[in-house]
């Protein structure tokens, strides 16, 4: 999977590396902003109220 992505990125290797890192950073950002807050709500792992 990762090798396949690497082969399909354009440019010489430093450019590919840069694109790859940006891609990973974007995915991590999306996880923190959307996915993890959703998961926290969905799994009820931090409830502190009674009733």
């Amino acid at each position: 999977m990762y090798a396949w992505i690497w082969r399909h990125l354009p440019g010489p290797w430093p450019v590919r590396l840069l694109i790859y890192l940006i891609l990973i950073a974007a995915i991590v950002y999306a996880l923190f902003i959307w996915v993890f807050p959703w998961a926290e709500d969905a799994f009820n792992i931090s409830e502190v109220t009674v009733g």
Partner: peptide
């Protein structure tokens, strides 16, 4: 096999990131 392995490693990394999120990110 390689693809499945990569997916599992990725899932592990995502779970670790989720821990980082709950402990520090929030």
């Amino acid at each position: 096999a390689g693809g499945v392995g990569e997916l599992m490693l990725t899932a592990g990394a995502v779970v670790l990131l989720f821990v980082v999120y709950t402990l520090w990110g929030t």
